[in-house]
Computed example of a mutant assay.
Amino acid sequence: MTLKEDWSATTYLRFEDERTRPSADLLARIPVATAGLVVDLGCGPGNSTELLGRRFPQAEAIGVDASPDMLAAARKRLPAASFIEADVATWAPERPADVIFANAVLQWLPNHAVLLPRLISLLAPGGAIAIQMPDNLDEPSHRAMREVALDPRWRERLAGASAARTTLPSLEAYYDMLRPHAAQVDVWRTTYAHPLDGAEGIADWLKATGLRPFLDPLDGGEREAFVAAYVERARRLYPALSDGKVLLRFPRLFIVATRA
């Protein structure tokens, strides 16, 4: 998986409220009062960019993403904002930003010890970078992906799928990684619990994100077979609750760092 592959805005937005909630929680912790330039890295369909615009209505807002489909949805949603197709790992603004917002994107990129200090260097003095990353690789939902990928039907082609996402270091490691480059570092972890419509609902959620490295190398019939096998495994891991729903636990790691 690379951030240059296209993503489906329609699939992603099926769970817009649930996906936007961490953005709102992250935004509330940014210690910047006013901003002239705010950047939304990995802006997707613009739901997080919209939140940034509400928080900083006087600022110029730029969304950056590598997916044309996501950017088309973002431009339709927010015609007054600027959206740029670029690799978020290397893109830089023309002038220092007051806020860099990176919601659910940096987990796809390696070498955070180099990447995150570089992003801090793109901030104006007193500016802040705000990061949220799923930290759920050890959850049953993601262990099941890796187990289904061992099926002989596709094991060889999916050998590298598990390495598509970066395994996140500890909170302590991120603090030590960023503290030499920042005046203040705030790190925390939150586990959300999302009621979904059974194992099928879990698969529908993950088709737009976590399952993509496993589904993209397969053809149409194989994708259907993979999802069916995944749903069957997930059904055993997530028993129905009293109302028929299942509860998807979703840990997320948050970082807010302020440049001196």
Rank of each mutant, 00 (worst) to 15 (best):
66 A>Y: 09
1 M>N: 12
159 A>P: 01
181 H>V: 00
106 L>N: 07
195 P>S: 14
7 W>E: 08
239 P>L: 10
246 V>Y: 08
138 D>L: 15
198 G>M: 10
243 D>I: 03
242 S>H: 12
163 A>R: 15
97 A>N: 00
62 I>Q: 12
144 A>G: 09
257 A>E: 01
41 L>P: 09
7 W>G: 08
253 L>D: 07
76 K>L: 08
48 S>D: 06
39 V>N: 02
218 L>P: 13
227 V>A: 03
255 I>D: 00
212 R>E: 10
217 P>V: 08
249 R>W: 04
101 F>H: 08
124 A>H: 02
196 L>A: 13
229 A>Y: 02
20 T>D: 13
60 E>A: 15
117 P>R: 08
85 E>A: 15
191 T>D: 07
224 E>G: 15
249 R>Y: 06
183 A>E: 01
174 Y>T: 02
147 E>C: 02
172 E>H: 05
9 A>M: 03
81 A>S: 03
161 A>G: 05
27 L>C: 14
188 W>L: 07
120 I>H: 02
229 A>D: 06
190 T>S: 12
164 A>P: 05
193 A>D: 09
36 G>M: 10
26 L>Y: 08
38 V>T: 09
143 R>V: 11
108 W>D: 09
48 S>I: 04
162 S>M: 10
193 A>W: 07
167 T>H: 14
124 A>I: 03
169 P>T: 02
227 V>E: 03
165 R>L: 14
245 K>C: 02
33 A>H: 11
176 D>S: 15
237 L>A: 10
154 W>S: 04
168 L>V: 03
149 A>K: 01
226 F>Q: 10
128 A>Y: 01
28 A>I: 09
251 P>H: 04
23 S>I: 11
191 T>C: 14
